[in-house]
Design a protein around this nucleic acid. Structure first.
Lengths: 166, 166
DNA sequence: ATAGGATTGTTCGAAATTGAACCAGCCTCG
DNA sequence: CGAGGCTGGTTCAATTTCGAACAATCCTAT
């Protein structure tokens, strides 16, 4: 087989190495965060992520769907986690006036407090692991990369399925 | 509060944006791959990943633990998935001569075939989404970044817990 | 108006992942 | 040797995630 054949069917070895390392790094990163968050603060990374997003939002509240979008997970998973957080007293549901189907999820004072306790822990981790070694150029470069990846993903979400390849 | 205080407790807004986008991109990437792989080829991303690793290994085989390491998941999850793949006939277990506790997992012909069917689908996706937009410099840069992240993670794995921060 | 279609959130069952407990077999050091 | 500790792999219960189905509500176009 020719080199072109190889390249079209598989990834070039160096490129392949980048890809697999990317997968490994992201997974390990998730695990570290999760372990630390659960060990020291009794919440999951997803739960933490929800708290962060709520704190960010107007009135420290957000709609379920929007939450699902930014967290990038199934709506049912959000329902599940919001129930948990609600049982823990970190979050409250409120009816939505402008749309009777909707519900707002709102951070409680306890929720905010918990977030503020947990944040330094994981932010310092993120800094040490992920960001501290970036100089300005690199960080700008990374930002650009993430931007194009994000755009590509949007693109693919818009045309969900091309022809299946077999 | 002073600016320094802010910076030590939270991330600078631009840095924060990079971090959250990183999380979103990686999650969306995983979902796209999974959806496509399950829809077109009836296997999960983790299962695909196992097949890839086996194909890579000597004799198209690998030990359970090593598999768990490269895939970055719990050993029990590997057991679970290898059972599934084995039921599908894509993989076989063999006793390990040099170590009676160990078991080799080996790709069957059917497994190789399945992998070769699935690979183009996901590799083209990876290319389109992730790699095509990288020029040489960027790809080198990314490789370097991944390298330092990986090293940082190694570091943290070695000293698992510093003092908890509260 | 109102019918048809889209969107919101929940529920349910199935699948996946985890961590802890566990048994074997290995290995080292007295 | 052989007792202790370590490693490889599986089992098990608990947690989480997903997708599909559903009811309620909204929106649009005729």
């Amino acid at each position: 087989m020719g080199a072109g054949d190889f390249e079209s069917r598989w990834l070039r070895p160096d490129v392949n190495a980048v890809w697999t390392r990317f997968l490994q790094v992201t997974h390990r990163l998730e695990h570290q965060i999760d372990r630390r968050l659960q060990g020291n603060h009794g919440i999951t990374h997803t739960q933490y992520e929800i708290l962060v997003r709520l704190a960010d939002g107007e009135e420290q509240a957000m709609r379920m769907s929007d939450l699902a979008d930014v967290i990038v997970t199934a709506k049912s998973a959000v329902t599940y986690q919001v129930n948990k957080l609600s049982e823990m007293g970190l979050v409250e549901r409120h009816k939505c006036d402008s749309d009777n189907r909707g519900t707002w999820v709102k951070l409680t004072p306890a929720g905010l407090e918990r977030l503020e306790q947990a944040a330094p822990c994981i932010l310092s981790l993120v800094r040490e692991l992920f960001l501290d070694d970036l100089n300005c150029d690199q960080s700008a470069e990374l930002d650009k990369l993430l931007g194009t990846w994000s755009d590509n993903l949007d693109e693919h979400d818009r045309n969900p399925v091309h022809r299946p390849d077999h």
